[in-house]
Design a binder for these strands. Sequence first.
DNA 1: ACGGTAAGCTGACGGCATGACAGGACAAGT
DNA 2: ACTTGTCCTGTCATGCCGTCAGCTTACCGT
Lengths: 213, 213
Amino acid sequence: MTGQVRTVDGRVAGRRGQETRQKLLDCLREMLSTSPYRDVKVIDVARMAGTSPATFYQYFPDVEGAVLEIAEEMAEDSAGLKELVDGKSWAGKTGFATSEELVDGFLAFWRKNDAILRVVTLGAAEGDKRFFKIRMKVLNSVVSPLTDAVRANQGKTDKTVDPAAVSGALVSLLASAAEHSKAFTSWGVKVKDLKPNLALQVYLGVTGKKPPR
Amino acid sequence: MTGQVRTVDGRVAGRRGQETRQKLLDCLREMLSTSPYRDVKVIDVARMAGTSPATFYQYFPDVEGAVLEIAEEMAEDSAGLKELVDGKSWAGKTGFATSEELVDGFLAFWRKNDAILRVVTLGAAEGDKRFFKIRMKVLNSVVSPLTDAVRANQGKTDKTVDPAAVSGALVSLLASAAEHSKAFTSWGVKVKDLKPNLALQVYLGVTGKKPPR
DNA sequence: ACGGTAAGCTGACGGCATGACAGGACAAGT
DNA sequence: ACTTGTCCTGTCATGCCGTCAGCTTACCGT
């Protein structure tokens, strides 16, 4: 699938080149999680990687280009989120456990990649198609199986419910909660209470019923 | 409340100065809605305002400082969102209408201020306390009255429900949906179907019941 | 071992944004 | 017209951007 890694001017990158490239990406990732996106400069990334700005431009057109690279890598990784929903049961207590695991897994993924996801979210909101596509890939890895689950569990009983809308809303909520968990703290929701509450919402959304006691 | 408007070096701004300042803010607002936040430069804002970069620095420490100004203005404006919930009934059909109006009003507000809210959201996510505070002010204008509504409507019946968590989750959802409405479109949810679906979620969250037919 | 070839890196440079300052333009009152 | 304080900008030092030519390094065939 992935062809050869190429430099900006078309040369194919060899072993050493790929190492440098990777180091630059790692340093950029680091920078993103420590300073505001707006303040991330090529020269800082290069300095941190122990190389020169010119080298950076050998491998990436600009900061955004490198960020997209990291984001795509992360999006690949997000495919694993499917397993949190695929083939799971939503019946009774098992169902609530499914919900809890989904919330847990999703939040963990988001927290692990929070820096890059912040930038992706911004790019998508600003209307950048490349970032939008990446964001959709991440969300879809949960939204698509979850939509099936909603359809299977309450689609029949209530025709006013649009499974895609419900599933999309639930995942949007999870994303928002993950990105701004601090907001919930400030509303007096303790960190350990956040997950159960989100799990409740998800369970309710999918099944349309209150969870068993 | 707001004392005299002052320049960076401490002089009080007069009539003409305030006009210039305002023009700079307006142009910055415009810039924010047309180009990515990362690419907004002082020199562009100054050019658009028909003045020089030096003038910009007379009134604001940097781009971020000016953005905070705009954001604070917007946050003041958000106080009006309270009226969408305060003193409204959540019973029966009236309740569902309340929910629809809340969704409608909230989305309209967000859309109207989408550019600045994007930046505020980013800043808050990056851990900037000033942006976080502003974001909370906006969200709280809905979250606090909505929490009361949740407590009044289903808090008694179900002790496992944390009103603050539910209310916070609902508003987070609305914010996320407003910022990324395009995502819903891509999930096959038509624009005109989005609002009713969100209204449904809100009604369900507040009352704990399915809406009347 | 040895040259050839392509990959890899960087110094240096023009261009542009930043942020500070001092001095000139301007409005308002006397 | 003169004075005073506000307001704006020309200019400058600094620093980042993005490009290029050219040097160094690694790999490969002979």
